Deep mutational scan, measured.
Amino acid sequence: ATVHVKGVTYHFDNPEQAEKFAKRMAKELNGEVHVDGNTWHVD
């Protein structure tokens, strides 16, 4: 799974980790999470 945060890409072997990371980053950055298959975007 892949997480894109403000133009930076993070790779996770575990999709659950990717989801938790994306949601945590969105919270910290006051952003929104969008999911597209195995790819998470934090804007």
Results as ranks from 00 to 15, higher is better:
35 V>T: 08
18 A>S: 01
35 V>A: 08
33 V>Y: 13
43 D>W: 15
10 Y>H: 05
5 V>C: 08
4 H>R: 13
10 Y>C: 04
11 H>L: 09
3 V>F: 01
7 G>A: 04
14 N>W: 07
10 Y>P: 00
7 G>F: 05
13 D>K: 10
32 E>K: 14
38 N>E: 05
21 F>M: 03
36 D>S: 13
38 N>G: 06
10 Y>K: 02
26 A>G: 06
22 A>P: 00
25 M>G: 01
2 T>M: 11
34 H>M: 07
41 H>V: 15
13 D>G: 07
20 K>H: 10
18 A>I: 00
31 G>T: 07
12 F>H: 01
32 E>P: 04
34 H>V: 08
21 F>P: 00
5 V>I: 11
19 E>Q: 06
8 V>P: 00
26 A>T: 03
17 Q>E: 15
25 M>H: 03
31 G>H: 04
40 W>K: 01
39 T>G: 10
4 H>Q: 11
37 G>Q: 05
11 H>T: 09
29 L>P: 01
26 A>L: 03
13 D>F: 07
37 G>Y: 03
7 G>H: 05
12 F>M: 03
6 K>C: 15
21 F>K: 00
26 A>W: 03
26 A>M: 04
5 V>T: 03
3 V>P: 00
43 D>V: 15
30 N>S: 08
22 A>R: 02
39 T>A: 14
38 N>Y: 09
26 A>F: 02
30 N>K: 10
10 Y>V: 04
8 V>K: 13
32 E>T: 15
27 K>V: 10
29 L>Q: 04
14 N>V: 07
42 V>F: 03
36 D>M: 12
7 G>I: 02
3 V>C: 04
20 K>Y: 10
11 H>P: 04
42 V>D: 02
5 V>D: 01
43 D>Q: 14
4 H>I: 15
2 T>P: 01
21 F>D: 00
17 Q>F: 07
15 P>N: 14
1 A>F: 15
4 H>T: 14
32 E>G: 07
13 D>N: 10
15 P>R: 12
17 Q>C: 14
17 Q>N: 10
41 H>W: 15
1 A>N: 07
14 N>E: 09
33 V>Q: 03
25 M>I: 10
5 V>F: 07
24 R>W: 13
19 E>P: 01
1 A>E: 04
13 D>Y: 07
12 F>D: 00
15 P>H: 11
35 V>H: 13
34 H>T: 12
30 N>A: 07
27 K>D: 10
5 V>Q: 01
4 H>N: 10
9 T>R: 08
40 W>H: 03
18 A>D: 00
43 D>M: 15
19 E>T: 04
23 K>Y: 14
43 D>Y: 15
25 M>C: 08
39 T>S: 14
19 E>K: 07
24 R>Y: 14
39 T>K: 12
15 P>M: 15
35 V>W: 14
26 A>R: 03
43 D>C: 15
6 K>L: 15
19 E>W: 07
24 R>Q: 14
8 V>Q: 11
15 P>C: 10
6 K>E: 08
26 A>C: 06
14 N>P: 01
3 V>Q: 00
40 W>Y: 13
9 T>Q: 08
31 G>L: 15
17 Q>G: 06
31 G>M: 15
25 M>V: 09
20 K>P: 03
36 D>E: 13
10 Y>E: 01
7 G>N: 07
30 N>I: 04
20 K>D: 12
40 W>N: 01
14 N>L: 09
2 T>E: 08
13 D>I: 09
23 K>S: 07
11 H>I: 09
7 G>C: 08
32 E>Q: 14
40 W>C: 04
11 H>V: 09
41 H>M: 10
26 A>K: 03
39 T>P: 02
